[in-house]
Amino acid sequence: MFGAFDFAGVTQTLPTTTFETELTRRVGDKTVKIMHVGPAHTPGDTLVHVPEDKVVFTGGILFIEGHPIMWEGPVSNWVDACNRIMAMDVETVVPGHGPITDKKGVAAVRDYLLYIEKEARKRFDAGLSAFDAAADINLSDYDSWGDRERIVINAATLYKEFTGDKTPNDAVGLFGQMAALAKRQGRL
């Protein structure tokens, strides 16, 4: 996944239709509503709602049974996206990561985001580093979720949000910190 890719023979095809906030299309006899809700997980976070089927495809907005990874933020966009899904007339929620869910899964992700924001803020205000905050936040309510070391990136992104720092995260350094935290917690 991190190795070099051979793009020989691949022709880049740029989109012919773009949108800023929302786009509605008809696909056969169905309405498809495409909504930009990012940046949150990434800059281009998008929901795709098919009202006739009461289904929404969430892309990276939802990580079910796994800790989300907040590369971009702000967290408020992510929470707003979850609330937007909760307000939809949907029965089936197809996440970008993890198994198909319903609104309970959406609420769990939203509640996690609100919890880590609150907990990171306490530690930020107390003067802890982002890494120390990540190590200190109690995630026992999320023990069944995979990839708990992602709290390192989430805390780092939240700390940047708290200070207004717009520089991109140091992905390599943060992956090293995730490994260090997993090792410290006996999971590596």
Rank of each mutant, 00 (worst) to 15 (best):
A81N: 02
P51Q: 12
V37F: 00
G38H: 06
S76G: 03
K30W: 03
V32H: 09
L47V: 08
P39K: 09
D80E: 13
H49V: 13
A81Q: 10
D45Q: 14
S76N: 09
A87Y: 00
W71N: 07
V37S: 07
V79R: 02
D89L: 01
V56L: 12
V56C: 06
G66R: 15
F63T: 12
D80A: 13
T58L: 05
T46I: 04
S76H: 10
G60P: 10
P51G: 11
P68S: 08
E72A: 15
T42C: 13
M35G: 07
I64N: 02
F57K: 14
I85K: 01
K30V: 01
P43N: 13
V55W: 00
T58R: 13
K30F: 08
E72Y: 02
D45Y: 05
E52A: 10
I34M: 09
N77C: 02
E65K: 15
N77W: 02
H36M: 09
F63R: 14
I34S: 03
V56R: 00
N83F: 00
H41R: 15
R84K: 15
T58D: 00
N83A: 06
K33Y: 02
G44Q: 10
M70T: 05
V37Q: 10
V37K: 14
E52I: 07
P68E: 03
H41F: 03
I69P: 11
V56W: 01
V37T: 15
V55I: 14
I61D: 01
